[in-house]
Lab assay of single mutants.
Amino acid sequence: NQASVVANQLIPINVALTLVMMRSEVVTPVGIPAEDIPRLVSMQVNRAVPLGTTLMPDMVKGYA
Rank of each mutant, 00 (worst) to 15 (best):
T18I: 06
Q9G: 05
N46G: 09
T18E: 12
V60D: 02
P29L: 04
I13D: 13
G62T: 05
M22Y: 02
T28N: 13
T53C: 07
T53N: 07
A64P: 15
D36L: 11
R23I: 06
T28I: 14
P38V: 08
I13V: 12
N8S: 13
G31H: 01
I32N: 00
A7P: 02
N1H: 15
V60F: 05
E25W: 06
L19T: 11
N8I: 05
L17S: 00
V5G: 00
A34M: 07
V27E: 02
Q2M: 12
V49R: 02
Q44F: 12
I37H: 01
N1K: 13
N14E: 08
S42P: 00
K61I: 15
A16G: 13
G52V: 03
K61T: 14
G31V: 01
P50Q: 09
M21S: 04
I37N: 00
I11S: 00
R39I: 07
P33N: 08
N1M: 15
V6F: 02
G62I: 04
S42Y: 07
N46Y: 09
S4D: 01
K61E: 10
R39P: 02
L40Y: 03
Q44V: 15
G52F: 04
V49H: 02
V26D: 08
D36M: 14
Q2N: 11
A64T: 14
Y63C: 04
M56C: 05
I11C: 03
N8Y: 03
M22D: 01
K61A: 14
Q9W: 05
N1F: 15
V20L: 13
V45E: 01
I13Q: 15
P33A: 07
R39K: 15
A3M: 15
P50D: 10
V41N: 03
S24W: 06
N8P: 02
A3R: 14
D58N: 12
K61N: 14
S42I: 03
V30R: 15
V45H: 00
A64E: 15
D58M: 11
V27C: 05
A16N: 10
V5L: 03
L51N: 12
D36C: 06
L17H: 00
S24M: 09
K61M: 15
A7H: 01
A48D: 15
I11G: 01
A16Q: 11
G52K: 03
L10D: 13
A3V: 08
P12S: 13
L55C: 03
P38R: 14
T18N: 07
I13N: 12
P33I: 09
L51Y: 14
A7Q: 01
M21V: 03
V49L: 08
Q2H: 15
N46P: 02
G62F: 10
R47W: 06
T54F: 03
E25Q: 13
Q9V: 09
E35S: 15
N46Q: 12
I13W: 08
I37T: 09
A34D: 07
M22C: 03
V41Y: 04
R23W: 03
D36F: 11
L17A: 00
N1V: 15
V15S: 14
R23M: 05
N46W: 09
T28S: 13
A34K: 06
V49N: 02
T54H: 02
P38M: 10
P57K: 09
S42A: 12
V41G: 01
M59I: 05
A3Y: 10
A64L: 15
V26K: 12
D36R: 07
T28M: 13
V5C: 06
M59F: 13
V30P: 15
T54N: 00
R47V: 12
P50H: 09
V30N: 11
M21G: 00
A7L: 03
G62H: 12
T54I: 09
A16H: 13
M59Y: 11
L10G: 14
P57R: 08
T28P: 01
V15H: 13
G52C: 04
A7G: 02
L19A: 12
S24Q: 12
I11Q: 01
V6A: 02
N46L: 11
Q9A: 15
I11L: 09
G62A: 11
E35G: 14
N8W: 04
R47H: 11
N46H: 08
V5M: 01
A64G: 11
Q44G: 05
A3D: 05
M21W: 03
I37L: 11
M59C: 04
Y63F: 12
V30T: 14
E35C: 05
E35T: 15
M22E: 01
L19F: 09
M21A: 05
L55E: 01
P57F: 07
V20Y: 15
I37C: 04
V5T: 06
A3G: 10
V27Y: 03
S24F: 06
N1I: 13
D58T: 08
V20N: 15
M56Q: 11
M56I: 09
V60I: 11
G52H: 08
N14W: 08
T28E: 11
Q44C: 05
G31A: 03
D58S: 13
R23Q: 05
Q44H: 14
V45Q: 00
L40T: 00
T53P: 02
L10Q: 12
S24C: 07
A34G: 09
I11D: 00
L51I: 13
V45F: 03
P12G: 08
R47F: 06
V15M: 15
T28V: 12
A7F: 02
I32R: 01
L10A: 11
L19N: 10
V6D: 01
Q2L: 13
D36Q: 14
R23G: 07
G62L: 09
N8F: 04
